[in-house]
């Protein structure tokens, strides 16, 4: 539904009024942006010293290689593992056997409700001292458990969304349960689930930032080194600004891929509705 259904095409008086609102709102927005910039300037936040690391080759390399690359590595390892976790538990939840269904249900519900931060600290302490890879795996595993639990729901719904006739026809041909699942249902379900899968990548990527509490590598780690370096005169604000921008750009790229994949492989219509206990990313649901 486009916005226009909510209001009439404006007449001359409404148009005049709207123009006033537009100007007022515009002035207000511009004024607040200017105010923020001026205050930051007065605080010396635009001094070259504070921004120097972001134009120095040594630091740009660190941000790209030790920051962006590590962050992406963590996010994608987590998503790959989460897909495995999701498939296993999603199918488990569909099992005909209660002894398989209930434990799977409990595991999925548990990890969907537990804050990622709690899981991260727990796994970090559990892994203990496995050299400097332990923070890395604490982040990856915590994100795997959470995103995997969400994906389990996505898979279940995806498989349920495959028309019933497909499975029935396969059974009629004499296929066994595993065969039906692997050769008939999963391939079709994956197609339906792709957009939801990619938007879960956005969630995972954003959550890698939580890794800073366990000293994980990645963008937040490089950021910590930069803003605690006295050479740059307490440049927390520039650092947060740069890191935030990098995250936004990465996520926008991912979202663009999600939209493209959706258009290319799924079409506009078929939308998967999953009730998500977790972070409900609306981009997981296609525009209607």
């Amino acid at each position: 539904m486009s916005g226009s259904v909510l209001f009439d095409a404006p007449g001359p008086r409404a148009l005049a009024r709207q123009r006033i609102y537009t100007v007022l709102a515009g002035v207000l927005l511009v004024a607040s942006v200017v105010w923020v910039v001026v205050r930051l300037e007065q605080n010396g936040q635009f001094e070259y010293q504070k921004w120097e690391p972001f134009v120095s080759p040594v630091y740009i390399e660190a941000i790209l290689v030790d920051g962006v690359l590590e962050t992406l590595k963590m996010a994608f390892s987590a998503i790959l593992l989460a897909v495995g976790f999701g498939v296993v538990f999603g199918i488990g939840k569909l099992s005909e056997h209660a002894w398989a269904r209930w434990p799977c249900w409990a595991v999925v519900e548990f990890w969907r409700a537990v804050p990622v931060l709690l899981a991260m600290i727990f796994i970090w302490n559990l892994l203990g001292t496995d050299k400097d890879s332990s923070p890395y795996w604490a982040v990856v595993l915590a994100l795997m458990l959470y995103n995997g639990a969400v994906l389990a729901e996505v898979f279940r719904a995806g498989i349920n969304a495959v028309p019933k006739g497909q499975a029935e026809a396969a059974y009629a041909l004499g296929m066994r349960k595993t065969q039906v699942m692997l050769t008939i249902l999963l391939p079709q379900a994956v197609k339906i689930m792709l957009p939801a899968l990619i938007s879960q990548c956005v969630v995972a990527l954003k959550d890698t930032a939580l890794g800073y509490v366990v000293l994980a590598p990645g963008l937040t780690y490089v950021a910590r080194l930069i803003y605690s370096n006295p050479q740059f005169g307490q440049n927390q604000i520039p650092t947060v600004f740069v890191v935030g921008t990098i995250y936004i750009i990465l996520n926008l790229i991912l979202t663009a891929i999600a939209t493209w994949v959706q258009k290319r492989f799924v079409g506009e219509k078929k939308v998967l509705e999953v009730s998500m206990v977790g972070e409900d990313d609306p981009s997981a649901r296609a525009p209607r």
């Binding site: 930032a209 890191v243 995250y247 996520n251």
Partner: peptide
């Protein structure tokens, strides 16, 4: 806001 990590 949606694309920025909450921590930030």
């Amino acid at each position: 806001v949606r694309n920025t990590p909450l921590v930030i």
